[in-house]
Nucleic acid binder design. Structure first.
Lengths: 135, 135
DNA sequence: GTCAGTGCAAACCCTTTGCAGAAAG
DNA sequence: CTTTCTGCAAAGGGTTTGCACTGAC
């Protein structure tokens, strides 16, 4: 994603594009991926950017509140931030903790239960947990 | 669940049924439900049981390792322990953080993607996120 | 100038660990 | 008796908060 498009995206979502926010966005939005705050901090350090830990956390919180990224709670140890905000499904590799996307089109659900009274559906997500063969 | 059946269940899973473990099991296995460690501690205190925080955590860890309960990571703030260990699906009420079960039979998935090479399926779980209507 | 964003460290919360004492087989 | 479990307090790891400083409009 080009810097120009990142600036546009942040503004579209009502987020002031400060240099630190653009740096975080440039890493996370580079491709469809799932990164933890920690992984993002490592990547920032790797490219010589100086963004403090707290700012990364604050930025990710703002991004997910504004719908720029999607927060995932798969592992109770840490949150993951998904650069793909559309509804989609995931493989979760339990041995490595690695998440990967499954396009919505590759899963079809033919029946669902009625929703609890007074609620409306926000999303339906399928998680396929996999492990290394023959463990 | 009767105390006698709890003792049996713990033994079946190779867990020594100490009094603290039986107390924790009695609360969690009372009905199909999802409780956090904290909620269990509150309930123990409420009924006047004296089980330390660390012991509750250690006990829950042992229970989930031995398949007596199922550990769920829905909320990154805390783990939930599910008294239903069979494969099943969940509603997640995003406003309240409340989880509820969906029997496996009420969801049918008609197509799934191929698994990543070298992996085997551990489980397929559907999470339906719902929110209060007209928020 | 004013208001929002940043950096740092300290605070926080849930969970795990270490160790001495207690209990189970 | 030996091994395992318990309780407490302290450590741990990820995340959030408070506050002075900096920077944007």
């Amino acid at each position: 994603m080009l810097r120009k498009d990142i600036l546009k995206k942040l503004k579209q979502h009502g987020v002031l594009p400060t240099s630190q926010r653009v740096e975080v966005a440039a890493i996370l939005l580079a491709r469809p991926q799932h990164l933890s705050a920690d992984q993002i901090i490592d990547k920032l350090n790797g490219r010589g950017s100086r963004v403090s830990k707290a700012t990364v956390y604050n930025t990710l919180k703002i991004f997910s509140e504004q719908g720029i990224v999607k927060e995932l709670s798969v592992d109770s140890r840490c949150k993951f931030y998904d650069s793909t905000t559309d509804s989609h499904h995931h493989f979760y590799h339990v041995d490595s903790g690695q998440l990967s996307d499954i396009p919505e089109s590759q899963v079809s659900i033919s029946s669902l239960p009625p929703l609890p009274t007074g609620t409306e559906q926000e999303s339906v997500e399928v998680m396929i947990r996999v492990r290394d063969k023959g463990r």
